[in-house]
Amino acid sequence: MAHRGGALHPANLGYENSMHAFEHAVGLGYRYLETDLHATSDGVVIAFHDHRLDRVTDRAGVISQLPWSEVKKARINGHEPIPLLSEVLERFPAIRLNLDIKADNGVLPTAEVLRKMDAIDQVCVSSFSQARVWRIRRELGERLATGFGQQEIARLRFAPFRLNSPGACLQIPEVFGRIRVLTPGLLRRAHALGKQVHVWTIDDPAAMHRLLDAGVDGLITDRTDLLRDVLIERGQWK
């Protein structure tokens, strides 16, 4: 899965979450893209990671406090416009998208875009916030694939009993602080429940091989070039 379109591929440096990066990943042969979502003050959903424009664009300000008429003037790395979620869905109708909702005000506008564009079956929606995961599930129902929220991941990781969750997958780091999140037991329990396990953000080929050997179902990477090489080497690039 191309994280922010493959943010650390040499061709994409400075252009994370841009159409340039997404198109580059698709051109390499990626069928799964990861991006982040924020909503402007007037409810327009954009593919963007930070809550502020400052780090990667030529403008400043908190996205949730700015209308789209202002946000759309910003340029990623001084050149690329910030894409709308609707534009990404329209540009790549055959590509699966993993959407990470970054703020509470983005949940309902995201649900509306996915309903309007009939794109519920094209996406998997995740969030660091368990409340956001619960809310998007309520809005879009059983058709929507979601990741597990943090509470669901913790229960499956630390409590060895069956977890009743509609989530389709766990999208987790190997380690979070001093806590090892991915363990053989967690992977085994997830698979017993029919859930996939995706690990982020893996940019080292040795780690890619090790995790694939362990049986994880997906890798989320900034180095789309390196993961592609690893999968070709393993005969898993299709």
Rank of each mutant, 00 (worst) to 15 (best):
L108C: 04
L186E: 01
A11R: 14
A206P: 08
R132A: 06
R55Q: 07
R178N: 09
A207Q: 15
R115Y: 14
D54W: 01
L114S: 07
H191I: 03
L211Y: 05
Q171W: 12
C169W: 02
G177P: 13
E233S: 15
S129E: 00
N105R: 07
V88F: 10
K72Q: 10
N77K: 15
V45M: 11
R52I: 08
T146E: 01
R180C: 15
L53W: 11
M1W: 05
A131R: 15
H24I: 07
E112Q: 13
A145R: 05
I153C: 12
A21S: 11
L99T: 03
A154T: 14
D217W: 03
L182V: 08
M1V: 11
A111N: 03
R180H: 14
P184S: 05
T183M: 14
L156Q: 06
F22Q: 11
L97R: 02
L182C: 10
N105T: 13
Q171P: 07
V216C: 05
Q122Y: 07
P67N: 11
E112I: 02
L193R: 14
A21I: 02
A94G: 11
L28P: 03
H3L: 09
V62G: 02
A131L: 15
L33P: 13
H24V: 06
T221M: 02
W134F: 04
G78T: 10
Q130N: 08
R234H: 03
E139W: 02
A190R: 05
R132P: 08
S126P: 00
R96A: 09
P173S: 13
V199A: 03
T57D: 02
Y32K: 08
R115Q: 15
D104Q: 13
I172H: 04
A190S: 15
H9G: 03
A159H: 14
T110F: 13
R91W: 02
V56M: 14
Y15Q: 06
T201H: 04
A111I: 00
L212E: 00
R52S: 14
A11F: 00
V199R: 01
Y32R: 12
I172Q: 08
R223G: 00
Q122C: 04
L231S: 04
D104C: 05
V181R: 06
S64Y: 09
D213Y: 10
E16N: 05
H20Y: 13
L37W: 13
V71M: 05
A190V: 15
I202A: 04
D203Y: 10
K73C: 07
K195Y: 09
Y15E: 03
H198C: 06
R135T: 11
T57Y: 09
V181I: 10
I95M: 04
I202V: 15
W237R: 09
M1L: 07
D217C: 02
R210S: 11
L219N: 00
H51K: 09
P173W: 11
S69Y: 01
L186S: 06
L187R: 13
L13P: 01
R188M: 10
R155L: 15
I82C: 06
G218W: 01
E139R: 06
A214Y: 00
L84E: 11
A74N: 03
N164C: 14
A94L: 12
Q236R: 12
L66K: 15
V133C: 03
L212W: 00
K195D: 10
A111G: 12
I101L: 14
I46R: 01
D225H: 06
S41P: 00
H9K: 01
V123W: 01
